[in-house]
Design a protein around this nucleic acid. Structure first.
Length: 536
RNA sequence: GGGCCUGUAGCUCAGAGGAUAGAGCGACGGCCUCCUAAGCCGUAGGUCGCCAGUUCGAAUCUGGCCAGGCUCGCCA
């Protein structure tokens, strides 16, 4: 064509929403129209003239304001099905990660009480992000950071101690701390101490027995957290204790490191992080004037530790209430000599727990919160996981307990699982009738004719692209909605057409399509950590 | 007051430069002699918070406003 190739914008092909707009489409003509000073439709027409028909392209057309639409021959569909059947569970996997080491740190709740629903959402998001990254070729490590060094652990110990004395009728000797943990589980911990130690701790001075209470309560709660997470299908590779940073003297070392690089300075008896020059808005205290390090100091140390372990990228999953902390953590990462982009912080918005449409009252202060365990017991792992990730992480989530529990058409989890069960059922029926699973070679030259089949194949075809998107954006909800639409496409297909009992060629092609759908649906559910039932 | 998130159908939400803005629930009407009806098909329902701008084109980008949530410690 008669124009300078340098002005050619990147040619992007996209899939139009409507099928009468072709299989692929490009808008280059409209982008070129300006520089060429020509009517976009004329440019598009000229382009069309240069595109050969054949080689999979059935025809091209100029449409709308100047789109060039490509209509493919339908052979790509059987290719897609054959690819899925050949690659099986690896279909959709990619090597974009190139084996690079990535760490996902999530949940990381203080071991001062049971996990509540908010932690549950973070757990589901973190776990699924890790699965997606693994599927995309990263070498993923999952880590839980145990905040066990701070003041909160002492408060937990004192709370337990007070309940211990109270249960043994000596409450007046160990008054309940003003900022103590008021939840009923503290009584359970105290009861467990009694079972272990009897009343022997009554005789010791409070200061002397406190370490025992602190350790006992912390260990017990952490054990509960571990088993809750494990029952939720969430696994960690590393449980990293904040205390270890202090045992190894890493915090003072990191402070020295920052001072030497001129990122920390003394002022009014405290040590400050010099945030000026970074995106954070003001300087932050690292070591208080009383000598006690702030959380920020141990968080910087912890992140230095992470990067020292060789991760090329670190992903933190935090509650959205910590969003103000992001700029300072990024600044710290930069001060450590890393690109701030090496740290990604995923903020999880709050879960609004409902029962039959009315909010369930929750308040950490009073100890009245709904635990993850309670939700799991009531609605089960599959529905809980799905509900936690079906919305974008950065938007508030309404979680209706009654809805999640309902085994009905109102519940998206069962809708997806039902599609899987139906697929398995068809394949069982096929086997029962003595029909062998056809060789994918029969697909050569076959064209799926109906709208429902075409849609279904197109959705199967888009799985790798969706995985890529979910991995780039660290967005589990992309997979959740993908699974939902794949299930929907299958249900439509299933209702519109018979699979068995048609002429042989069609039976074979449809069986292969059903099998391929089962494979991809299974992969999507595996990414979500939701079970793929054989029967329902 | 500053910052971050959100505002799309009655409700809950997708869509993040593209063509006629999509799902589910709820409402209404249909579909099992047949591989699972926990399903499917159809109808109704919209000023994409408001106002300007950018451009061939804006729900999408920019600025300003309005509303809701969160957040702004030598707290954790």
């Amino acid at each position: 064509m008669d124009f300078d190739p340098a002005v050619l914008p990147e040619v992007l092909l996209e899939r139009p929403k409507r099928k009468d707009q072709g299989d692929w489409s490009t808008n280059v003509a409209m982008q070129l129209a300006r520089t060429l000073r020509k009517n976009p439709r004329d440019v598009a027409a000229k382009l069309c003239g240069h595109i050969p028909v054949g080689d999979g392209i059935a025809r091209t057309e100029v449409a709308g304001p100047g789109f060039v639409n490509f209509f493919l021959t339908d052979s790509w569909m059987s290719d897609t099905v054959a690819t899925v059947l050949r690659e099986e569970e690896t279909y959709g996997r990619s090597d974009t990660g190139g084996g690079r080491r990535v760490q996902v740190e999530f949940v990381s709740a203080n071991p001062t009480g049971p996990l509540h629903v908010g932690h549950g959402r973070g757990a589901a998001v973190g776990d699924i992000v890790a699965r997606i990254l693994d599927f995309s070729g990263y070498s993923v490590q999952r880590e839980y950071y145990i905040n066990d060094a701070g003041l909160q652990m002492s408060i937990l110990g004192r709370s337990t101690q007070a309940r211990y004395f109270e249960l043994l009728g000596k409450g007046e000797r160990a008054p309940f701390p003003e900022d103590g943990y008021k939840g009923a589980y503290i009584y359970d911990l105290a009861q467990a101490v009694i079972a272990e130690k009897g009343d022997s701790l009554l005789a010791l001075p409070l200061q002397e027995s406190l370490p025992y209470f602190r350790q006992f309560a912390g260990d017990r709660i952490l054990a509960t957290i571990r088993s809750d997470l494990s029952d939720f299908g969430v696994r960690f590779d590393v449980w990293f204790s904040e205390k270890d940073l202090y045992v190894a003297d890493d915090v003072p070392k990191t402070m020295e490191f920052l001072k030497n690089r001129d990122f920390a300075f003394e002022h009014e008896g405290a040590l400050w992080f010099k945030a000026t020059g970074f995106t954070d808005e003001k300087d932050r205290v690292l070591i208080r004037s009383n000598g006690v390090p702030t959380y920020f100091a141990s968080d910087i140390t912890y992140h230095k530790n992470k990067f020292d372990r060789g991760f090329s990228k670190v992903i933190d999953i935090w509650g959205a209430d910590h969003h103000g902390y992001v700029p300072r953590m990024k600044a710290a990462v930069e001060a450590l000599g890393r690109d701030p982009e090496d740290l990604s912080v995923l903020l999880i918005q709050f879960v609004n727990l409902l029962r039959d449409g009315t909010p369930v009252a929750m308040s950490t202060r009073s100890g009245e919160f709904v635990t993850l365990r309670e939700v799991l017991d009531e609605v089960g792992v599959d529905a809980t996981r799905y509900f936690f990730v079906m919305r974008r992480s950065d938007s508030h989530l309404d979680f209706d307990l009654e809805l999640a529990k309902q085994q009905s058409n109102e519940n998206p989890v069962y809708y997806i699982q039902y599609a899987h069960a139906r697929i398995r059922s068809v394949l069982r029926e096929t086997e029962a009738r003595g029909i062998p699973l056809p060789d994918p070679a029969v697909l050569r030259g076959f064209e799926y004719a109906s709208d429902e089949e075409k849609r279904l194949v197109a959705t199967l075809d888009s799985f790798p692209k969706e995985v890529g998107k979910a991995s780039r954006e660290l967005a589990p909800h992309v997979i959740a909605s993908y699974a939902y639409s794949l299930a929907g496409d299958f249900h439509s297909f299933y209702n519109a057409h018979r699979i068995l009992g048609e002429e042989e060629k069609i039976v074979k092609a449809r069986l292969l399509l059903v099998r391929a759908t089962g494979i991809v649906l299974g992969s999507a559910l595996r990414l979500l950590g939701v079970s793929a039932p054989e029967k329902m």
